[in-house]
Structure formats: C-alpha cells, structure tokens
Design a protein around this nucleic acid. Structure first.
Lengths: 347, 347
DNA sequence: CTGAAAGCGCTTACAG
DNA sequence: CTGAAAGCGCTTACAG
C-alpha cells in the first residue's frame, strides 16, 4: 500500500509511472538501499538469501540503476566517447560497428559525436563535446586535420585511429606498406611503371599511400609520374579515369580507394579499354571490390581489427588511469596490409 | 589562494587536475552557484555585468556543466538513444549520420547501441539497455524481427524506422511503391515480365518490395514468376545471377538492393550476356549504383531525409511528453520513392 | 536580479 | 554481513 504511494506519485501530476529506485527495491526487499547497491554491483559478501530477496524485488520492479546518479557519485563513467567525421563512409562505419561490439563486451556504452567537417576546429569542438561524462575517447576521422592545430583533452584516456601521432596511443593501418604491395604486384605483372590516382592531398592517409607507391617505384628504378589527385569519391575516380583512358602509355593504375576505382573502371569500360589486358587496376580498402566488374584487386583493410584494437587499447588506458592516475604516453598498434588479387590485375 | 586549494586537491593523491565545477566558477566570479547555473542555461535575467563576470570565469576555468549531475537533478536528459543492428550497412550508416547531425542541431547527444543480431530477443535487450538515461529512442534495424515478439519501452518517447508498426510513430520509405516504379519502368522498356531477386524472406522490407513487384506485374496482367530469395549480400546476388544468366527467357530483373545487383551484374558479364540488351537490370537503394558497370538504374532512397524525419518526430514526442505527459499514439511519415534511370535498363 | 536550502539516486567511507 | 550518514554537481522552488 505505502509502497504504491511511494512509487507512484512522487513527481505528481504527470500521470506516468516512475522508474523504480534503489529505495523502492530496498523497501520491497526489506533491506537498506546500499544492500541493493551491493547486489546491483555484485559486490562484497551479501548473504545469499538477502541477495535473492533483493534480486526478486529488482525483477518485480524492473529496477535498473540510474546511470547519471551512479556516475555522478562514483566519479567515473562506463561510457566511451566516439568522435568521427563523415561516419557513413564504409570504412568508418565498419570500424564503428566493431567499436560498439567490443565496447559492449567490455561493459562500456558508446556516446557518438559526428564532427560536421574534418577541419581541426570542428574536430576540436567535437572532442570538447564528446569528452563530457565519458571514461575515455576513441577518435576517428583525423586524417585531414593539421596535427598542430588539434587540441586533445588532457588527463583523459584516449586512442586515435591514425598512425602519425606517435605521442598518443593509436591503432592504425600500414598505409604505405599496402601501397608498396599493390605497386609490387602491378610491376610483377609486367607493367613498366604504375600511375596513381590518389585521395585528396590534404589527407594524411592519402599522402601515406602516395609515399608507399613512390617508394616502391623508386626502389624498382622505375619512372614516377605525378599522382592524379582525387577526393575519394567515385565521381572523381571517373573523371581522372577518363584522362587515363585517353593515355595509351598507361598500362597499370593504383587507385587509393575502391570507390574511386569503381569510377576508373567505368571510364575505362566506356573508352573501350580492356581490363586487365590494356590497363591493370588495383584498389585499396577491399570494400565490395569483389563484385565490381571486373572483380577488383585491392589492398584489404581489416576494419574489424582496427575497431577492436582501438577499444582494447582505450580500456587499458582507462584502467591504468583509474588505478595509477597516469596515462602511458604511447602505445601504437600497426595493422599489416594484405593484397587480394582478382581479375582486374591478372589475366 | 583558497581557490587553488579548493580546485586542486579535492580527490587527493591522484595528481591529476579536477574539472572545474559551478562552485569553482562561482567563487572566481564572486557569485553563487545558481547564478552560474542561470548563465550556463541562458536563463532568466542576469545583470549583463554579472553574466559577463561569470562567462569570463567559465572560460578561464574551462568550465562545462557535469551532464550526469544535470540530468540527475533535472530529471530529464539531452541524450537520444539510437538502437541499430548491423550498422555498417551503407543505408543504416547514412541514416545514422543524418540522425547525429539532426540531433546535434536540436541540442541532443547520441548514445549508440548496436544489437548483436536482428532477432527480437537481441533487439529487446538492446532497447532495455539503450533506454537508460535517455530522453527518447530512435530504433532502426527492426526489419527481421517478429513485431509480436518486440517489447517496446512504455512511457518513453520513441520513433521507429519501419512503416509497419502503425501504432507507434515511425518514419519509413515506401518500399512497395519503389518496387512498382522499378517494375513499371522495366515493362515500359518492352519486357514481358520481370524476374525478382529478393532480400531474405524474413525481412519485412524485402517482403514489401516483393509485394510491390507482384502488384505491378498483376495489374499489368503479366506472369509473376517466383521470386528468388537472396540475403542482401553481393555474393547471394552473384549466385542467383548465375541462375538467371543461364535462363534465356529472362530479359528483365528487379533486384531488391544494389549490393545484390552488383553480384548479378558480375554473373551476367561472366555469362557473356549484354546489359541491357539481353537483360535489363534495376536495383534498389541507389548506393554507388552510378559507378557499377554498366551504371545501374535504381530506386533512390533518401536516407538523409529518413534520419532527419526520425529525429524531428522524436523531438516532438519528447517535448510533448515533457509538457503534457502524454505520447501521441501514432505519427507516421512515409517518404516517396524515386526512380533513377541509368544504362543498365535503357539503351 | 540574486542567494540559502533542499534533494535528484546513487555509492563511499565509517560503524556495528 | 548490514545500515545510518554524507555528498557527487547540479537545478528547482522559495525568499528577498
């Protein structure tokens, strides 16, 4: 009876059911609120029979601890902030999915903040927003920002999907190594040199892929033409692909991502060039490359492993920070590249 | 001096800087904490000069209100829970990006929860988790669950990306209408009937696309072959495409999404069938369809509009709920389909 | 226009 | 093993 009143009409007038609190559970189970807390947190020794009474009461009342109160009092949070930019791109989306899954497995929730652009300003603002109330931060989408302009939160566990920032923990993919693999494969196929269709010059990942391509050509003693700069989009690949299709000297193309490669393939088809006989093509990312026409050779990125590595690294930082109050300065993981050969580069 | 002590060493021994609180700001500005609160919330009348002193102090201390304390005390939250499943699919990822952007514009943060599978059990569990501490819920990814097995939170503002659940607010795409458009276009092109490669039979969206396809054929008095059931993946499209390529009676194919269509195109190429002369193909979603070969005609889904509509609808519900304590039973938006014609279906 | 008091729901010492 | 007291940082009435 009294319980009904207590539970039902505390914030009067609204007419909708209140969520049960630890106090409600305590009343129903005949214990004190902190015994409820102990059971909820699986703590200490609570007499089995007491625990069961509490668990029963929780179930009957549909009790779930109020996360705001918990993190306010405990001074720690079980939320990981995830900063991204342009998260609908397939690569980012795959990383995000893996981050969610791994975070869940470690008992963390995800607060997602998408920066309106890749500029350092927007990313800084988004990081400031995302750091509120979280135990740590996973930061994607830094590739187009000037490192010097970025302001990272201090005293907050943090991990970055970018292999440049060696003073911060990061998980990254060996971009240059992937490019070297691609070029080596095209040279092995008989090409005298390899033309590159790059991502935007402002993108570090694009620059790293260009670097790998150039290194591979130079170490093989081949000519290194100027790269053609696109913007990652299929449309830009299409436009640059038309230039290549018109140039009968080009017999091998390394494209910095699969989306641009799809545009390149279309341009080559429309110009009547046979792939791979006239022009061999290798892409990067290995996203749906298998079902382009012809099936596209590509550098496979293990996005799932990146997402997993990001969360594992961050959780280590969080625990270290909680235990010792320190953050290890650097803890970088680099994921090895893998070439998948398909019909676009081999007869 | 005293300020330093207050600010610096409250939780002693850890050695890392504490975040500034309203009390710290108040002390520095020479006002009370709730004047700080008023400024932080842009409330009431605060004397301009007082406001400026407070703003200065906030800036100097890098003050940001503690979200946990705020939502605990205020009894409301500025977080929207976003429940998804398999969020790396391009369609979902695009909706999620639009949800993030729109939510941000309304002053809400996003808590992202990804269900491990599309089963009703997993979705129910994920909704229970996601509802903690949020003002409302956006639910994607319901398409494979039995509606009857789903348990939606009560008394919580909610919006669903699914057009079936007419008793709950929803924003959806006119799947059947899109399918009718596709079939009508293929019949206009001279096909006597249209073969369909469907998504999984367990998916409602797939079923709705099948329904539209069947209706369009029947109302035109054409034969309605059995649909071929895939699983949305390019690989399944490839496998079913091989069956179609072997059947010389098939001259028009409607594929329930673009990813399967990419597999169909590959199978037709490999069998030496000319597209669209021998077989015309139309896909669904319009995701990178433009740069398949040949460029793929497709039903365009405006994912951005869906994400935007979901958040707008939810925010209305949240405000109504806060003001009046009620939730409007139903508020459904259906987004109209659009056909984009490309070379895969027209000479 | 500004402030002193109380309390949101929980957990952290401290008793017993 | 269990409980009474205090407080995390903020905001909501209530005074003045």
């Amino acid at each position: 009876m009294t319980e009904h009143q207590t539970t039902g009409s505390r914030r009067g007038g609204k007419g909708w059911a209140q969520r049960a609190t630890a106090k409600d559970v305590a009343a129903l189970a005949g214990v004190s609120p902190q015994t409820v807390s102990r059971v909820a947190n699986d703590l200490d020794n609570v007499l089995p029979q007491t625990r069961n009474r509490v668990l029963d009461a929780m179930k009957r009342l549909g009790y779930a601890p109020n996360a705001a109160a918990r993190s306010l009092r405990a001074g720690r949070s079980t939320t990981i902030g995830l900063v991204a930019h342009h998260l609908s791109r397939t690569g980012e989306a795959n990383i995000i999915e893996a981050v969610c899954t791994t975070a869940r497995a470690h008992g963390y929730d995800i607060a997602l903040a998408n920066a309106p652009s890749g500029s350092a300003d927007d990313l800084n603002r988004t990081m400031v927003r995302a750091r509120q109330g979280v135990a740590g931060l996973v930061v994607l989408g830094l590739e187009t920002a000037e490192v010097g302009d970025l302001r990272f939160p201090v005293n907050l566990p943090l991990v970055i999907a970018d292999s440049r920032l060696l003073s911060l923990p990061s998980v990254g993919f060996d971009q240059a190594g992937g490019a070297r693999l691609a070029v080596g494969h095209l040279l092995d196929g008989g090409a005298r040199t390899v033309t590159m269709i790059a991502g935007p010059a402002t993108s570090i990942q694009s620059q790293q892929r260009v670097t790998g391509w150039r290194e591979a050509l130079q170490s093989a003693g081949r000519a290194t033409p100027e790269p053609l700069w696109g913007d990652w989009s299929p449309a830009s690949g299409y436009r640059l692909g038309q230039m290549i299709a018109d140039d009968s000297h080009v017999h091998a193309v390394f494209v910095a991502n699969d989306e641009m490669a799809s545009g390149v393939l279309r341009a080559l088809h429309e110009a009547g060039r046979n792939i791979p006989r006239d022009v061999a093509v290798v892409g990067f990312d290995d996203i749906s490359a298998e079902y382009l026409w012809p099936p596209l050779s590509s550098i496979h990125q293990d996005f799932r492993a990146i997402g997993h590595g990001l969360v594992s690294t961050l959780v280590e930082q969080i625990e270290q920070h909680a235990d010792a109050g320190v953050l290890s300065p650097s803890r970088s993981t680099v994921i090895a590249p893998k070439l998948v050969v398909r019909a676009s580069s081999t007869a």
